[in-house]
């Protein structure tokens, strides 16, 4: 006869938790690599650092198949519309990592041509300092993003990443 506690025998979870678990462990990146950081991003994807250990190795060059936009490198004013277009094409839910100083705030390129941060055109969820960041720092950012996804309440997986307010000379 059945004499055990029912809860010990059946794994109970809410559907939302399962979805979050699946989402955080299959973050397919779209590497929007423009400059130096793209080379480090390749290091992250390849032999030594191998981001596939976190389920994020399937680099998709089509935004339609990606969950995670990795902005790596400086974004010029000429490039900004392309970045926005790619972001708009990604299906929800989607996240953005600004990798490196240039994507985060323009970095050393405080000039007429460079956007002072990718967050002027797309909402950024995680900023990774460094020029370029070490691959470890990028993996660290992915882990932090995964934690954030699993912490999110209910179906809401994005926690209000927003466009940066326009700031002069920031």
């Amino acid at each position: 006869m059945f004499d055990g506690n029912l809860e010990d025998m059946i794994m109970t979870t809410r559907l939302g938790e399962v979805v979050k678990w699946a989402r955080k462990n299959s973050l397919w990146p779209m590497p929007f690599g423009t400059s130096c950081c793209a080379i480090e991003l390749m290091s992250v994807l390849t032999t030594k650092y191998d981001i596939s250990r976190f389920g994020a190795e399937v680099a998709r060059f089509s935004p339609r198949q990606a969950d995670l936009l990795m902005v790596a490198g400086w974004i010029t004013r000429k490039m900004a519309p392309a970045l926005r277009k790619i972001y708009d094409q990604m299906p929800e839910p989607k996240w953005v990592i600004a990798m490196g100083a240039c994507a985060s705030c323009g970095g050393p390129h405080n000039s007429y041509a460079v956007l002072q941060g990718a967050d002027e055109v797309v909402p950024v969820d995680m900023y990774v300092p460094g020029c370029p960041p070490r691959p470890e720092a990028v993996i660290d950012a992915v882990i932090k993003l995964q934690e954030r996804i699993s912490r999110a309440s209910g179906d809401e997986t994005r926690q209000g990443a927003a466009l940066a307010p326009r700031q002069e000379g920031a």
Binding site: I97, V128, P129, G130, R148, Q159
Partner: peptide, 12 residues
Amino acid sequence: KFELAAPSRAEL
């Protein structure tokens, strides 16, 4: 120290 990823500019 180099693992500094943060979700906002202000934290950095």
